[in-house]
Write a protein that binds this DNA or RNA. Structure first.
Lengths: 195, 195, 195, 195
DNA sequence: GGCTAAGCGAGACGGTACGTCAAGTCTTGCG
DNA sequence: CGCAAGACTTGACGTACCGTCTCGCTTAGCC
């Protein structure tokens, strides 16, 4: 019933993550400081440090709070179409604002913070890989994929080119690009054996 | 007449880059400071700022000075074998010390410094891609590759999985892993058409 | 039935003051924090703030609890001897541990906390001055002191040199020093009139 | 020729001390922070820490810069009159703004910073004591003082009561008070021997 | 003897300042 | 005149306490 209630726990956590995303979008992750997040969120610095051990950890949580549901896989029975739909959705998330730029920054951070790298894999990459593998396994059992196809490599082969475009060449990551990659992968590099 | 003569120009440039690599290996790129490089190299900070606009630019130059020759492509006539050899060499460079850790850090830096990203593409990724495409084109003309194979995508498809392993999952990048990826790519994901 | 029963009122007050003295001795008053006292005493910070408005007030109470009886004046009929005895006792208290260092710190605190200064005068300096003046008045009435002797100044003249030694020069405050001061004061600075 | 020249060394030192005195007067020493001095002086914190190891050391230098000449002793041949004049001057300095409040704070600081105490004695108390003793010695040689008078105690006996009033009772330190003290000291406490 | 009100420990919270570090700019004086 | 040396302002770091606050638990005191 107070006019300016001193809120606790989850309230503060949420406000800090929201502010992190706001500031991150406005000034870019590189210039983002915990000091500035605290000031903008009306929080004490200690309140942030109590929750997150590093800027990377804060960003990771903030970012994942944007995608709590995760990316779900459709299963229409046509693996090629389903993969296309799912990867289109992934690309829309990864490449677009606000997720995209901050996600790239987070991967940058993961290069010198092993804990961020581990958490990123465990909480984002891993679950997505699991779903991908599960869907591909079903397709393989139905004969839509080559029986020899190595499911462990699926994530690297399917996602690698996207991350290459996102992180290295930094050219636009479009649906059309995804489609070309998928076509090439389904066909294979070598000449078709049957002729 | 001094015992440590005040050297100029290229001497200073080289000494600073060498020190950057040394310090980068010792304390990690994240903790690398221009201040520390200057102190260790016996150089004034101004001498560094006169040559490089940012830490990323300094690291890029320092790193590329390790691989001035670039990675050359063999051409034995067998594209599958040549690719394998070449990518093994690339992986040996990228994943091993001292290049690996600093290279990963550089890609991290490229996520928030567009100039570093541009220079990285222009001076390292691009040339490698050109060589790869040239070798693949020759192979395609000889019928060793599918005529439909999209050469523009070659670098993303071949390198993407490696960078995914290097940057995202951060698991060891071995020859055996490369071989499995290449096998899968040559075969293609879909079931073989001949049946 | 608890092994560490949650005690109330005076128990807590006493425990907090005892802890204050302990910690003050161990780490020095300057580094003493209410946070640390609370933690060591197993008390909540609020329990301390409920009783004392400031660190100075807490220290004052803690310190005076060491000397609840006060310093009593002997009256043997010989004022010079009685003064000597009494000031020796005062010096033993003021200069020795644990009282001395904390007492000095308290006077330091009194320089920027008027409430501490007032309380210090009211509860420690004042009563001692009253006793001193009363004893001196008796001596004056008995002709042992000059009739012109200004009793109001007695405390300043007798104690001033001691506090000077304690607070300013910070050299040892010994019985021998006190004796020399008393001798000089009884004699006076000027040349003796009788000659 | 620049409009806002970046000044060095002594300029910065002087500006910081001046700001320290200003801020100290405005908000009081207890609330004085190095952060605030730096901000007000337009100086970096490091520039302050480079020069002074602590707040006390900064205040000491700042304060002594107000009284670089020191308090000089007159010598008219009449020691009682000269002492009176000199102590009046000392009291005017010690008790009045801006010196007084900051000087009290400095003595407070000296209670838990031995280095401040040492510097205070060496640079302020000591020189004043030396002058006092020299003047008193001359007077003693001329027969104006008791030959037995212990010159080593002079400073404590003469100044002690003033510091007692300044630091402990914190009542006004007036010329009239000084005069009463001096009268009492010259006379001595005991009854006059001539009777 | 059960109920309520207060005291209490614990510690989260918004703040302020600490003392350190490095960034990037500048000045000085050597060679 | 390029350089090393390093002083300078700026800004962020991560830590320590401040004094206020909320949270449940315990304990007294009053019905």
């Amino acid at each position: 019933m107070s006019d300016t209630p001193r809120r606790r726990g989850a309230d503060r956590t949420e406000a800090i993550m929201r502010t992190t995303l706001e500031l991150g979008q406005e000034i870019g992750y590189a210039k983002l400081s915990i000091e500035a997040v605290a000031a903008r969120a009306g929080a004490g610095k200690h309140t942030i440090y109590r929750r997150w051990p590093s800027k990377g950890a804060l960003l990771l949580d903030s970012l994942l709070s944007l995608n709590e549901a995760g990316l779900d896989y459709p299963d229409t029975g046509d693996i090629a179409a389903d993969l296309r739909v799912q990867i289109h959705a992934a690309v829309d998330l990864l490449a677009g604002p606000p997720f995209g730029p901050l996600f790239r920054a987070l991967i940058g951070e993961a290069q010198h913070e092993p804990q961020v790298a581990a958490a990123l894999n465990e909480r984002f990459i891993g679950p997505q890989a699991d779903k991908t593998v599960a869907r591909l396994r079903a397709a393989r059992d139905q004969g839509q994929l080559s029986p020899q196809f190595d499911l462990e490599l699926a994530m690297a082969i399917l996602s690698g080119p996207l991350y290459f475009q996102l992180l290295i060449t930094q050219e636009p990551l479009t649906h059309e690009y995804v489609d070309r990659i998928l076509d090439a992968l389904f066909t294979g590099i070598g000449p078709t054996h049957a002729s």
